[in-house]
C-alpha cells in the first residue's frame, strides 16, 4: 500500500496541499514543545534543559518502531522509501559545521521558522544567516565540487553497512534513549539547583 505517492495511490495535484498540512503539524509540534526559544534548545549542551533530547529521541524511536510495524503489517514497503544517500567525509564535515552553527545561533533551520512566527528577531536573523550561508556555499561550489561528491556510499541503511537488522538498531536506539532520559533528568536536576531560570 504505502508509500502512497511513489505507489501512485495519491496523485500529484495533492502534493503541495499535503506538504503544507504536514508542515503545519511539524511547526505546531516544534513550537508547542518549546523549540521556538534558542535558550531552551541550547539547554541540551549545558545541562539545564534537556527538552531536545526528550523530544528528539522519542520521535526517532516512535518513527523507527512505527516503520518496522508498518513494514511488518505490509502497509509500507520500506524498499520504496527514500534513503538519504551517504557521502561519508562531506557529511561528517557538514555535521561539524552545523554543530558550530547550532551552538552559535541556538536554532536549527526548522525551529528558526517557528521562532520567527512568534516574533523573535533572533530567529529571523538566524534564517537570514541560513540564506547567506547557502548562498556562499552555492557560489563557491566549484572550489570543492570534488570533495562534495567524495565518499559516496550510495543510499545505504545501517543494515547495508553493518549487516545487522533494522530491528536491532531500533531496539538499541530505544535502550539508549531510555538511559538518556533517565541520566539527563538527574543531571538536569543538579544543574537547575544553581540556576534561577531554565525554561524560556
Amino acid at each position: 500500500m504505502g508509500p502512497l505517492f511513489p505507489n501512485g495511490i495519491i496523485t500529484g495535484e495533492w502534493d503541495f496541499v499535503i506538504a503544507l498540512l504536514l508542515g503545519i503539524i511539524f511547526g505546531f509540534v516544534l513550537e508547542a514543545s518549546g523549540f521556538s526559544s534558542s535558550r531552551n534548545i541550547t539547554g541540551v549542551f549545558y545541562g539545564y534543559n534537556f527538552v531536545v533530547i526528550r523530544v528528539f529521541f522519542t520521535a526517532v524511536i516512535v518513527a523507527m518502531v512505527g516503520m518496522l510495524y508498518f513494514d511488518y503489517f505490509g502497509w509500507l514497503d520500506l524498499s520504496k522509501i527514500f534513503i538519504l544517500p551517504t557521502f561519508l567525509s562531506p557529511m561528517i564535515l557538514g555535521g561539524v559545521i552545523m554543530g558550530v552553527g547550532f551552538i552559535m545561533g541556538g536554532f536549527c533551520p526548522g525551529t528558526s521558522f517557528t521562532a520567527i512566527a512568534i516574533g523573535k528577531l533572533d530567529g529571523l536573523v538566524f534564517a537570514i544567516g541560513l540564506f547567506l550561508g547557502i548562498f556562499v556555499f552555492s557560489l563557491s561550489f566549484p572550489l570543492f565540487e570534488n570533495f562534495f561528491v567524495s565518499g559516496n556510499m550510495g543510499n545505504v541503511t545501517l543494515t547495508d553497512v553493518t549487516g545487522i537488522s533494522a530491528a536491532w538498531f531500533a531496539m538499541a536506539f530505544t535502550v539508549v534513549a531510555l538511559a538518556a532520559f533517565w541520566g539527563t533528568s538527574i543531571i538536569e536536576k543538579k544543574i537547575r539547583k544553581n540556576m534561577t531560570e531554565h525554561t524560556f
Binding site: P90, G94, I97, M98, P109, S112, V136, S138
Partner: peptide
Amino acid sequence: GGMFFGFGSQFGR
C-alpha cells in the same frame, strides 16, 4: 550561526 548551519547543511545533504 545561521551562516554556518546553512553552509554545513549543504555538505550534510
